[in-house]
Design a protein around this nucleic acid. Structure first.
Lengths: 371, 371
DNA sequence: ATAAAATCTTGTAACGTTCCAATCCAGTAG
DNA sequence: CTACTGGATTGGAACGTTACAAGATTTTAT
């Protein structure tokens, strides 16, 4: 039995015209413009080889009917969407929030929409998120954080979806990130130049990744260059007072107390740095008099007078823009060949959480020299 | 001429098995399980009326082939996706960032994915964003901010997509928000109880919406109840010093100077409150001694010791959860009838940016009493 | 034993595009 | 007048599902 499309319900437009509720399809346009659906399709997609007269007729039919191509049908036949999957560690983290916003904006500007997956740095969620994205046939995936889980990698590769790592670093896929090693060196150099000798490196376990690792490398390099002991690597989950220091669990406050105490910390990111400041505030340590802190990222709040966190600034918007450009070129086959690595310069922003010897109060200078 | 599907390229798996690159379709599963594709579809969708034996066979075929339903095809036939559009004012704003994260999480937990549109509070972007979402046939739209533009409204309605307003307020569509009027009263009451008399209301023009309006109403009500002049409404775009005070442009610093100066401000949201604190810091006003500030939202950073912003706390996660639940029920037709309004309680969180008379230094009390 | 009912299974028609080989047609060369 | 050329146009086959009426099979009731 023939079960053709049921007669579309009619409705009266406010101007009295009779309109069809069901949105017009390419066929409606075709019959109105007295051409085939193929021609309409060609016009809509702006392909060459359509006469001006025909093009005009089709455009006018489109306008009259208020036709909008059905993305879903297009996606089915092309087996692809114009959605970019974005894997982000923590949307509530100010750094990621800024990046997410930039990524969304640049993607939208180029005709793509963003679909976010929050992973909480958990490789299990990351895997699930990537699965979902692939299921939705996203055109490509932007990683704003990557846990390093290999299964995820394999999956993305198997499905042959372009992948770009922005502000994170992997061996496969295009990478757009800052020179983390350089940043780590800048931060550490700044502390050394300020007279500090016992400088620790701080990271938050949940956020440890290859960026973190590179920053740590920069730290170690610079410490070595200055003939200093690479100091301590502190891994800490706020608001606990218990930290993992070089793999040994100890009370964070003890790290900053006593004759061998740490006088400065290079935090692998601003959130960690601000958390540490908060810790210092609560435990009566003055910043920078008792403890200097340098962060990484330069999130907006680091610039508040009350926070005043010295930090390494990343050009977030540039990262996002380059990342989007890269993946879109990959998607549209304008960029071929092996994965491309783009490194962007970082810079130090000095604020109140550190201060140079020249402007330090005498007391502090003395304190430091004895440390 | 018959143009049947070309033979799929073969590849050798690492275990030596011969695999087909092209992902298996429902037909592959059907032939392997020796049933029709309809039955496979029924099994996949978990419909009743399939014998256990058949179900088992189909499941095993699915597993062997690694079959995953093609979402795109499903979407085409159903003319619907399982994507939730989320319209957000500013992803980089900590409040929205938190909400976005919660929304994404709850949506994912219920099998939906989130597609975000950042609007910058600009009704033009909002319109474009909603268009994009509708083009992608999202199952519903969650507004985390709404500019009040009527064209957007009409569009969403015309397409008959369920809509929910979370933490914002509109007349049409379901609404899940906090009692903004009550919040405004709580904040204002707190300032009045602390001894303030000249209390201003502050908002940031870009973020002004109906929530803002309701909070202002709460402020006016409470001021009136206390027999106080409703004071001033300050509209300010940081970091400028020029503010619109009751519609008149004047220097912000003058507002807090002189005999008639404002001693306390209720900021319509934390970002505004923190911006004001920053302003105060830069212009040498002490908080809370010279100026008390109450915010709204209780964003995470408001709780930092260095910020210590007294504020009205919104249960963000609850809002997000209820919002998602509501719209999904709407989508799945479990919730019928007229739009539903859900109001959630707010509470005051006291921090350092205000302090009660009892604990105020004498000076400040005196200062305040003379104001 | 047979009819009726219940359960399970299936064939076919959508869904609205894109893609491409084939066709059409006007103009041009031989 | 015929053959050819090349641009404009077209018809129909995909794309991989879901929806649904109809068919097949088994069970129950009479």
């Amino acid at each position: 039995m023939a079960r053709g499309r049921p007669a579309p319900p009619l409705e009266l437009g406010h101007d009295g015209s009779v309109a069809v509720r069901r949105p017009p399809t390419i066929l409606d346009v075709a019959s109105r413009a007295r051409v085939s659906k193929s021609t309409v399709s060609n016009v809509v997609r702006g392909l060459p080889g359509v006469s001006d007269e025909t093009r005009r007729r089709v455009h006018s039919a489109i306008k009259q009917l208020g036709y909008r191509p059905n993305v879903l049908a297009r996606q089915l036949v092309q087996q692809r969407t114009n959605i970019l999957g974005v894997v982000v560690g923590d949307l509530a983290n100010p750094f990621f929030a800024e990046m997410a916003k930039s990524v969304e904006r640049h993607a939208a500007a180029r005709g793509y929409t963003a679909m976010f997956c929050n992973t909480e740095g958990d490789s299990q969620s990351e895997l699930a998120g990537v699965e979902t994205l692939l299921e939705h046939r996203v055109a490509g995936i932007v990683f704003l954080a990557f846990s390093g889980e290999s299964r995820v990698m394999r999956d993305a590769l198997r499905h042959q979806v372009p992948v770009v790592f922005v502000s994170c670093h992997e061996d496969w896929g295009d990478v757009v990130t800052v020179d983390d090693v350089k940043g780590g060196r800048l931060a550490t150099r700044h502390l050394i130049d300020s007279g500090h000798r016992r400088i620790a490196y701080l990271s938050i376990p949940e956020l440890e990744d290859r960026s973190d690792h590179s920053r740590h490398t920069g730290y170690r390099e610079e410490m070595a260059a200055a003939g200093l002991r690479a100091g301590m690597r502190i891994s800490w989950s706020p608001p606990s007072d218990l930290a993992l220091v070089d793999g040994v669990e100890m009370r964070l406050r003890d790290v900053f107390d006593g004759p061998d105490r740490v006088t400065a910390v290079f935090a692998s990111n601003d959130v960690a740095g601000i958390d540490l400041q908060e810790f210092a505030d609560r435990f009566g340590l003055r910043v920078p008099q008792d403890l200097s802190v340098v962060g990484f990222d330069d999130v907006p709040m680091a610039g508040l007078a009350r926070i005043g966190l010295t930090t390494i600034s990343q050009p977030r918007d540039e990262l996002a823009k380059l990342g989007i450009t890269t993946i879109i070129e990959r998607i549209e086959r304008k960029l071929k060949g092996p994965p491309r690595l783009t490194l962007i310069r970082v810079s130090l922003v000095e604020r109140a959480s550190t201060s140079r010897l020249a402007v330090l109060p005498k007391v502090r200078t003395a304190t430091k020299r004895t440390s």
